[in-house]
Design a protein around this nucleic acid. Structure first.
Length: 117
DNA sequence: ATTATGACTCCCA
DNA sequence: GTGGGAGCCATAA
């Protein structure tokens, strides 16, 4: 499996991402791209490439994160839960924290989004 | 060395 | 608002 979670020489990138994830308050959510933007991008990498793949690396980091990391508070830029086996459980966890989903199963990022403010 | 794929995002029809 | 394609990194086969 392509655990695409490692930018060139940035195994600690995971730790930074995990730390950012731990910084997400209860009842708030963030996106892969947002966390990637907050994390330190690999030097010399094209911003466009990082924008696109940084988000994937964040996803990869979440894929095998420690148990103390609130991976369920990380969703995609569409405000939806990324297709995954435990997507239903993720939604349940978020709802348990007070995060509201609309009829389309989407989170209102304007209210619950976190990462910059 | 080449091909396929991935917890993504952006752009355009 | 929805849907499909491109982007361009690293890992696995």
């Amino acid at each position: 499996m392509a655990r695409f979670a490692t930018p060139p020489g940035r195994e600690d990138f995971h730790e930074e991402v995990w730390d950012l994830a731990r910084s997400i308050p209860v009842g708030r959510v963030s996106t892969y791209g947002r966390l990637a933007a907050l994390a330190t991008p690999p030097a010399g990498m094209d911003p466009a490439a990082y924008r696109a793949f940084g988000a994937r690396w964040v996803g990869g980091a979440m894929a095998h994160c420690p148990d103390d990391v609130p991976w369920w508070r990380v969703i995609n830029a569409q405000g939806k839960i990324s297709p995954r086996d435990t997507a239903g459980e993720q939604r349940r966890l978020l709802e348990g924290e007070g995060v509201e989903f609309d009829a389309k199963g989407r989170v209102d990022l304007a209210i619950h989004a976190w990462g910059e403010d």
